[in-house]
Amino acid sequence: MKPGISKFVWFDGKYTTLEKAKVPITTHAIHYGTSIFEGIRAYWNSENLNIFRLEDHIKRFRNSGRFYSISLGYTDEELIDAVINLCKKNNIKKSCYIRPFYFVGEYGINLHVNENAPVHAAMFMFPFGDLFNKNGISAGISSWRKFSDASTPPLAKMGGNYLNSILATQECKRNGYDEAIMLDLKGNVSEAPGENIFTVKDGKLMTPPLSSSALEGLTRDSVIKLAEDFGYQVKESEITRGQMYLADEVFLTGTAAEITPITHIDNKKIGTGKTGKITQQLMSAYLDVVMNKNEKYSSWVTSVY
């Protein structure tokens, strides 16, 4: 078993061990990226394991495949049960990351994928803490632009889409940054390779719209609602590179990244060069929600045990 990954996985409707979950080298998804995935977090609060926005993740999971006519042969209820029961079967009692995915199986080299193509579904999980340093990270603007709806739907969490993100990540790492920031085809801020982005200026929050090739992130949506609870104005608007440099605060949002402050962009200090007050406030509020300590958002949390 690979270190860190739980012993049991779910594969085509059955629970099995990681070692037995195999696919042939002729699998279509290996050749063409015809795979769809989700990233889901579950949080252990010393009493229960709480899965965050499980139903919303499963809904997006299905919708991503619809762009490509790739059929998911399980109901939402079956997939939700599979996630919960996989946590139970592995007896997970620590915060973890859950990766459900489905993909086109043996289909030759045919590019005409349709609803009749053979599709497999699977999920695995592993313990997971912080993706980034929560005291703040550095970021660099990538020369690789985020692809647009004119070529590939950015709203679909497809395996092949993330080759774009890999190029941007490789570039930023070579240049000594923790993470990349990608611009859209018009030169406005889009998102990071795996996260949405927010700026704060004069107490107002801005985040790029979906038309800037931004993913419709669930953490993004959660943060917008939390910020509005605090009385902050949140606007979806095009953000120029210059506006981002002059922001008081900049932070990323994502299932893996949660809320991560960016303190430097292109070696330029953002605000004070430290985590901003509003970012810190949202980080604290978000942690309460995912730990099931905020009754208003208890519907976002699914308890396992």
Rank of each mutant, 00 (worst) to 15 (best):
L218W: 06
R60N: 03
A285F: 01
Q280G: 15
V23L: 15
S95M: 03
G108A: 03
Y297P: 14
F101A: 07
T16A: 14
C172L: 06
I92E: 10
L163M: 05
A214N: 07
Y286K: 04
L226W: 03
K296P: 06
L167F: 09
F230Q: 12
K157Y: 01
I137H: 03
N85Q: 15
L18K: 09
E78F: 06
V23E: 08
G159V: 04
S222A: 15
Q233W: 03
T253D: 01
P127C: 10
L226C: 08
Y32M: 11
S148F: 05
A214H: 05
P118N: 12
F126R: 05
N294I: 00
N164Q: 11
N116S: 15
V304W: 04
W10S: 12
G217A: 09
N45F: 09
K94Q: 15
F8K: 15
F67C: 10
F103N: 01
A139V: 12
L49Q: 10
N85D: 15
I166F: 10
N85R: 14
C172H: 10
F147D: 03
T75G: 14
L18G: 10
C87V: 05
K296H: 04
F128P: 02
I30K: 02
I137N: 07
R99D: 05
I25Y: 10
N90P: 09
L49H: 09
A256G: 14
M123W: 04
S237M: 08
V119K: 01
L79H: 02
G187I: 00
K94V: 03
T260K: 10
A256W: 00
T253W: 00
T253Q: 02
F124H: 08
A227D: 11
C172W: 02
A168C: 12
M1T: 12
K20S: 08
P118I: 02
V104E: 02
E171Y: 00
S64A: 00
T26W: 01
R99C: 05
E55N: 15
L54W: 02
P261D: 04
K2W: 06
E249G: 07
F67R: 12
I262H: 12
